[in-house]
Amino acid sequence: MKRNFTQTLGFTFLFSSLALTLLVLFSIIYFIGVRGFRVLSWTFLTQAPRQAMTAGGVAPAIVGTFYLALIAILFSLPLALACAIYLCEYSPKGWVVNFIRVGINNLAGVPSVVFGLFGLAIFVKFLKFGVSMLSGGLTLGILVLPVIISAAQEALLAVPHSIREASLALGATQWQTIRRIVLPAALPGILTGIVLSIGRVVGETAPILFTAAAFYLRGFPKSVFSEVMALPYHIYALMTEGTHPKEQTGMAYGCSLVLLLLVLAISALAVFLRQRQRGRFHV
């Protein structure tokens, strides 16, 4: 009797926690959705802002965000993969590697604005890339480096030792084993890491604040050395400009909705990729 009561109580507590979490999540989506949907239109998605950002659209910000993410991933992916492969497959196990691993994990905990300052010092000033798409993309790339390294390491470590041995026993070299057996088996995990880090890159504001972001541009960026607009920063810009609060707030909600949908779509892609790989080979 008493045990049953405790169980019911426990269950109720767990269930209401879940319900509350879902409620918060859905109200965010609903809130942003309803307000954002009012301004969402073809014009909004395809045109540049006009009349002090009270009309027109956010197309340059969408394009800018896309380019920033592209540069970030192109830069960080090869580097992160190489690090992860070296750490998991080649380096002698021991305290040095453990130390590096802890270091990388801690890098993931550094506040993003610190990366912004770092990017300003290194890319903007020292390497003289200026406030540009390139500086911002590279800064974002460094930001997600630990995320991809960790995901890739986890994925590599999850590949069973027995199939590495099988490959080597056939007379494959270690590199052949890594490239043809280990990496393909680790691919779903690595892909998920990539997609999640794209989600992260797309949503970050602080790292591009001093390195890439433009308050307001009429057109699209012309080269990697141009300043860019980006969705998260554009929201910030709209809300702090304050010349036409009413219209600009509306635009900001529209912009948020676009960003939210983008991030959701990317997460959905991650889930999809993972499921598809699982279905093919249950590693």
Partner: peptide
């Protein structure tokens, strides 16, 4: 060559499992 205690096929097709050794 070596055959292990636990079967350890690669997570590939039957064909590729054998072709792999030939390719490397």
């Amino acid at each position: 060559g070596m055959v292990f205690q636990k079967p350890n096929p690669f997570p590939k097709s039957i064909f590729e499992n054998i072709a792999y050794g030939l390719e490397v």
